Amino acid sequence: MAELNTGGDGKDKKVRSKKQNAGVDLTAMVDLAFLLITFFMLTTSMSKPQSMNLAMPDKEDTEKPDEDKTKVDENRTMTILLGADNKMKWYMGMPNEPLEGPNDQTYGKSGIRPILLEKNRQAVAYSGGDQEKGLIVIIKASKNANYRNLVDILDEMAISNIKSYALVDITDLDLEILGEE
């Protein structure tokens, strides 16, 4: 074998061992991390956005003249008006001569929900027990109403099992009822 001559005779110098840097092999840890990520991705269910289906009319249907509009029975028709500052009013029948109301109401299970359930029960009884001919709700929101109130009332329609409801533009008479002119 070959010998390395470092100069000097080597008698006076101490022999030192070379220190190697401590190295950690991370291959196993990376494999474990990918296995855990894969496991949690496959076992976790993705949250689906919750949305409500709304049937919107065709554009051609909205351009029909006023005399072609469908007539509804005022005994089965409830109108809900949404205004500023979480204000809500409802009435039964037509706005110029309501059968009942206009009444102030609040949102939630102790507010509008019992009224919707009772009026729906009355409308079904009025139409001879036919569940398909229940309450018809017309929802009218003013420019000052907030989006949350509209979503809340749509949720109440789903909870109360109201099958026929519509979002309609608010009229000047309805704005007078709300107190927003």
Rank of each mutant, 00 (worst) to 15 (best):
Asp61Leu: 09
Ile80Leu: 06
Pro57Ser: 04
Tyr91Leu: 03
Met157Ser: 04
Asp9Gln: 07
Leu54Cys: 09
Ser45Leu: 08
Leu26Ile: 08
Leu42Val: 11
Asp155Ile: 06
Ala125Leu: 07
Ile139Lys: 03
Glu176His: 08
Ile162Thr: 07
Lys87Cys: 02
Thr38Ala: 15
Ile80Trp: 01
Thr171Leu: 00
Ala145Ile: 06
Ala22Gln: 13
Gly10Leu: 01
Met56Ser: 10
Glu74Val: 08
Lys59Val: 14
Gln50Ala: 10
Phe39Asn: 03
Ala125Gly: 02
Thr70Met: 09
Leu178Pro: 01
Asn5Ser: 09
Lys89Asp: 02
Arg16Phe: 11
Ile139Pro: 01
Lys64Gly: 02
Tyr147Ile: 13
Leu173Asn: 10
Thr70Ala: 13
Pro65Leu: 09
Ser51Gly: 10
Asn53Ala: 12
Arg76Leu: 15
Gly101Cys: 06
Asp66Gly: 06
Glu132Gln: 14
Lys143Pro: 05
Val168Gln: 15
Gln105Asn: 12
Asp58Leu: 10
Arg76Thr: 15
Arg113Asp: 14
Gly93Pro: 02
Met46Leu: 12
Leu81Gly: 05
Asp61Trp: 03
Gly7Phe: 05
Leu173Tyr: 13
Ile112Pro: 02
Glu60His: 07
Ser110Ala: 12
Met157Trp: 02
Val30Ile: 15
Lys69Arg: 15
Leu42His: 07
Ala33Cys: 09
Glu181Met: 08
Val24Thr: 14
Leu167Ile: 15
Ala141Val: 04
Arg148Ala: 15
Lys14Glu: 14
Gly128Met: 03
Lys140Ala: 15
Asp152Leu: 15
Met29Arg: 10
Tyr91Gly: 00
Asn5Pro: 01
Thr43Met: 09
Ala141Lys: 13
Asn120Phe: 04
Lys19Leu: 09
Glu181Asp: 13
Gly101Thr: 06
Asp31Val: 14
Met52Asn: 07
Pro98Asp: 00
Glu74Phe: 04
Phe39Gln: 04
Leu82Pro: 07
Gly10His: 01
